[in-house]
Every structure is written in structure tokens, then in C-alpha cells.
Simulated scan of single mutants.
Amino acid sequence: MNESWQQSLQARAVHRARVRGCLLGGALGDALGYPVEFSSLDRIRAAHGPRGVTGLVTGGADAPGRISDDTQMTLFTVEALRQAHSRERLKGIGGGAPRLVRWAYERWLETQRKPAPDPEFARTHPGPAGGLVTEAWLYSRRAPGNACLSGLATDFVPDPAAPLGPPGPVNPDSKGCGTVMRSAPFGLTGAPADRAFDLAARCAQTTHGHPTGYYAAGAFAALVAYVVEGESVEGAVLRTLRLLAAHPGHQETSAALGRALDLAAEGDPSAEKVERLGAGWIAEEALAIGVYAALAAPRVEDALLLAVNHSGDSDSTGSVCGNIVGARYGDVGLPHDWVERVEGRDRIAALADDFAAECARR
């Protein structure tokens, strides 16, 4: 076996570990935060002690490790991007990713409307055979975002040639974090960061038309792409800021990332500092909190807990942080005793492996 082949195999193994880490890390952060979403920091500490949540906990009748709509939509994004890559590779048909992503979100919407898989829907819908829409464990409504639900009532697919910057036609005033929490997969395909940014931003417009909503999604995808390339989290944020600066209307997203960098540089991470960045309900705040936690905490476990122990959208900020640290350190860098308890862990890992293998094919 020659040296170049060995290097190629090693690069593929590293990419596979980062894809696995990103998707499993996001699911873990989601599962850590889901039981305390909507709770104030005071209530979290009253229920779980002065340090807040220190591991996977129950949420009402739910068992520990349950994922929310954040991971559900992320997985459907992966399914669509894998389908788009395969279609371009085998048939030479490119440019269809926005439509395939929109159809994937339609399949996710089916899981929010029905109690169990409908064989007729699976048979007639243009999704992959035996795909996620056939899996019963995903048929659970876990506090989906209103803009995601209402936005998918309109069959809008953005024009890849249209300029970014103006508000989109679907929910033009909405910049909820539903754009960010599903967008890590755009950074996992091996495409350059600027292309990941563009595709994630455009696909975010299917549900959220506010420029900050879709720029935050694009920025997150670019950040993940840089980290997967081997960049440090801080370096990835700085490069993402340079990418953002070229787009009109980027200021809110750029300012939020700048605040995360500055706050992390202060040291002494704390929940109180997290709350200086906001609550995470809107896109730029969720991105900033996830980035701050990934930058400020010394260990992966600490970063994930920092990302969820605050007043606000704890599952989304935990998911964003988990995507980042998972992409940075790979699946071997995640706390395995926590990962083993995450709902759908085996399916998520298998989907990640299939996605990484497909993206490695040219």
C-alpha cells in the first residue's frame, strides 16, 4: 500500500469520525437540554442542584436521553444531502439539493402530524426507500418551532441564483433558532465553507425569511465545515466572520459571534455569562451560546453542560455546541456513557457513516 493511499484512508477515517461526532454530539447536547428547555436558570438549579444539570435527566414522563425536533430535523437534513450527493455522482444531476432538502422537511413534518409511519405516504413521497420517514421512533412531537411548522405549509424552494440579503417570502420577520439547529450537516459534505454557507442559508429560507435567521444558519454550516477541515473552533469563528462580512445584512449575526469570542476570552465560564448572550430562542443567540460554550469550557462534558444550563432554549444551544465539539474531536472525544443513552444512537451513527461514505465518493 503506497503512502498516498494510506494518507487517503487516514483522511477518510478522520472525516468519518468528525461526521459521527458532529451528529452524535448534537443529539447528545439536544438530549441534555431538552428536559430543561423553557426552565429558568433558577428553576434548573432548584431542581438539579447548584451546578444545574450535570448529566442526562428525565423530563416529565420522558426517559433520559430523548432527542427533540432539533435532532429530528438535522437527521432529515442529512438524508436529503446524502440523496443530493448520490444523485449528482451517479446521474450527473446537480443543483437539486434545495428541493431535496425541502422534501426532507416535508417528511419530517409528516412525523409531527401522524402517530406512526404511513406506508402510503412512504410509497408515494419522493424520498429514499426505507428512509427516516419509515422509522417509528421519530414519530414524536418534541416542541417543534412554530416557524418551522408554518413555513413548511408553503412549498417554497429558493432560487440558487437569487442574491442573499433581502428578506425571504416565507415568515419574513422570523429569525428563530430553527434555522441554526438543523444546519450542521451542510458543513459535513466536504464542500468548501462558502458553498456550505450558501446552501444552508438558502435552505433556511424555506421556513424563515429574516436575513439574520438564514445568515446564522449559513454561518453555522461554514463554521462546521472549517472545523471538519481541522481548524480550531476559534479559527473557524474568525474565518466565518470574514465570510459573513461579504453579505449585506450580516451585522446581527456577526455581532453575536463577536460577543461570543469576547466573552470566551474573559475566562471563568459560567451560566451567568451565557445569559449575557441571550436565551437562544433566536438564531444568532443560539449560535453565539453554542459557540461560547465550545470555546470557553475546558472539556467536552463541561462545554455541553455550559450550553444547556441557562434560561432559554437549552436543547437548541446544547445541540449547536454538541455539533461543534463533536466535529472538532470526533465521536471518540464524546463522553461515551452519555452517548450510549441517547435515543436513536445506533441509527444516528449508521446514518453518519453512510453520509460520510457517500461524501467521500466522487
Rank of each mutant, 00 (worst) to 15 (best):
A297W: 01
P169N: 00
R341D: 03
T212G: 10
W103D: 14
V180N: 08
P128N: 11
G258I: 09
A260I: 00
V291Q: 03
E135Q: 15
A296I: 05
G187R: 09
S183T: 09
F156P: 08
A352S: 12
L277M: 02
E88Y: 07
L24M: 05
T189Y: 04
N2I: 13
A219G: 14
E272G: 01
T58K: 12
V224K: 10
Y34T: 05
P172Q: 03
R276L: 13
R276M: 03
S319Q: 06
T124Q: 15
P172K: 03
A352I: 03
A349P: 08
L261W: 04
T189D: 02
E110G: 01
A294K: 03
V332H: 13
T77V: 10
G130V: 10
G92Y: 11
G318T: 05
H125R: 09
G96H: 07
A283F: 02
F186N: 00
R102K: 13
A307R: 02
P298H: 11
G29I: 04
R202I: 11
A219M: 15
K273S: 05
G55L: 01
I93Q: 15
Y139F: 15
P166G: 06
A350G: 13
G127C: 05
R182D: 06
A204G: 09
V308R: 09
R51K: 13
G165H: 04
A147I: 04
P248D: 13
A193W: 03
L351C: 00
D42R: 15
Q72H: 14
G280N: 01
R362Q: 07
A222N: 15
R113H: 14
P335W: 01
L24A: 14
D313M: 02
